[in-house]
């Protein structure tokens, strides 16, 4: 539990010690995400890690196509976009030409595990020294809640209205376990943001992933299980509970591969 302790921020004049505030690189504006969406939490964790590592001026991020497409509105560092799924390819082009910068991609499950599967696998296999933050919420949120490659069996979506049928739609895909045998992939961990406790773990994993890159160790990816209350058709609290009871059962939390 010691590692979970929260850093004390020096108090403003006349105040008690502030122990938690918005990280400096997360712009102080409203985000466009639905209530209870995990993106807001994950954006913040990334910013906290970047601030704590002091790497803001070296960071180049690649925003995905999906709900987080305008992540650059919230992040106060250099960002570019990529066509849907090509995110790791764009990251490769940046990192190879700017090896001293810290390059990370932020991708959803459609982006990373469907249209960009080839780019993901080959970036890992080449051992690109980049970091991927993979947000797995099991649906295409931006386009209206269609089935994602990670949608659980039986889950109802806009394109699996009677629930995902394994016979018709196939099985949900576990990307970390696919990447694990590749020698180029160095650090792979699955975390979740369904509770404060798990969110603190998620931050540690993201920290380790960025450190993996800073230390030149190679490809790192953190899969973050995240809530989509809107397209799961439930309250944020129920969505968080669903991750604990259902999603994390199929996608077990923990380190899949480390060095």
């Amino acid at each position: 539990m010691k590692k979970n302790r929260i850093k004390v921020i020096p108090a403003k004049k006349g105040e008690t010690n502030r122990v938690f505030a918005r990280p400096a690189t997360l712009r102080d504006i409203d985000n466009h995400y639905c209530a209870g969406c995990g993106h807001g939490i994950i954006h913040r964790l990334i910013c906290e890690v970047i601030d704590e590592l002091g790497i803001r001026e070296k960071v180049i991020a690649i925003a995905p196509v999906g709900c987080a497409v305008i992540a650059y509105d919230y992040w106060d560092f250099d960002v570019t976009e990529a066509p849907h799924g090509r995110t790791p390819a764009v990251a490769t082009g940046i990192k190879r030409t700017r090896p001293n910068n810290i390059v990370f991609t932020y991708q959803g499950d459609g982006d990373l595990a469907a249209i960009g599967t080839a780019e993901t696998i080959h970036a890992a296999n080449r051992g690109e020294n980049i970091t991927i933050i993979f947000v797995n919420n099991g649906v295409y949120g931006m386009t209206g809640g269609q089935m994602a490659p990670t949608t659980l069996a039986g889950q109802k979506t806009a394109t699996t209205i009677y629930g995902r049928s394994l016979r018709r739609e196939g099985y949900p895909i576990r990307m970390l376990e696919i990447l694990a045998p590749l020698p180029g992939a160095r650090y792979l961990e699955r975390v979740s943001v369904h509770s404060a406790h798990e969110t603190l773990r998620a931050k540690r994993a993201i920290m380790k992933a960025f450190k993996t890159q800073v230390d030149g160790k190679g490809f790192s990816m953190v899969e973050v299980l995240s809530m989509c209350p809107t397209y799961w058709g439930m309250s944020a609290i129920k969505a968080a509970e669903r991750i604990r009871s259902d999603v994390a059962t199929f996608y077990p939390l923990g380190v899949v591969k480390t060095y």
Partner: peptide, 19 residues
């Protein structure tokens, strides 16, 4: 207790915690 669990989970990052 100022444990900050509320702030850690807040997707809007609008909770400040003091001790």
């Amino acid at each position: 207790t100022g444990c900050a669990m509320c702030a850690v989970i807040c997707p809007e990052c609008i909770i400040e915690v003091y001790r």
